[in-house]
Amino acid sequence: MLAAAPIVIQLALGAMALALVLGLLVALARISKSRILRGIALVYVEVMRGTPLLVQLVYIFFVLPAIGVNIDPVPAGILGLGLNYAAYLSEVFRSAILSVEAGQTEAALSLGYTPGKALWKVVLPQSFIVSLGPIGNYFIAMVKDTALTSVIAVTEILKTANIINAQTFETTQVYTAAALLYLLISLPLSRIVSALEKRARIHV
């Protein structure tokens, strides 16, 4: 079962990377001047948040092949988790960006930054600091949500536990071990997140 732990880490890291990049893009789209971009981004967020992650994973793994898109279990899991969490992270980024005072942008503009550069060099770094805590918490939640990928044949911790249980019928021990393993991964993460949050709060 311990051997399944790296898969969980891989799923969570891969999906988080995807969610961070896509989440930022969606957040920027939601605050952009273009009505069309704003609309697309809003629909994306509502759909992703309004349907269960489990259904989204099943959709990617079992429905997409019907239109000729076959994705292996692990990449499918990363894609599903990443697309879903991107919606939540986009909201984190959006509110963090809006929380940066307009004066910061005005100061940058007055110093000769273009609007894009002011966003990239002045506003986003500050938003990111504010976002660190929520991002960390979503990362921990995601580690636990990797268990859902067991239904699309990813041999992560829960799936491995199911297999061992079917062979040994040691139900209590097997699932207790599985739960402890998740705890073992997420507890240190929680510690890291609180430390990051504390450091970030010092200046901004």
Binding site: E101, G103, Q104, E106, A107, A108, L109, S110, L111, G112, Y113, K117, K121, V122, P125, Q126, I129, H203, V204
Partner: peptide
């Protein structure tokens, strides 16, 4: 805009940068 320097009532220093970092940033970025 680099021809005009502006000083605001509310200072508007970049909060995530030191005093030195604030003065350096536009020199490097702009």
């Amino acid at each position: 805009r680099t021809d005009l320097g502006m000083v605001f009532q509310q200072f508007n220093l970049f909060l995530n940068k030191t005093a030195l970092g604030n003065v350096m940033a536009p020199l490097q970025d702009v």
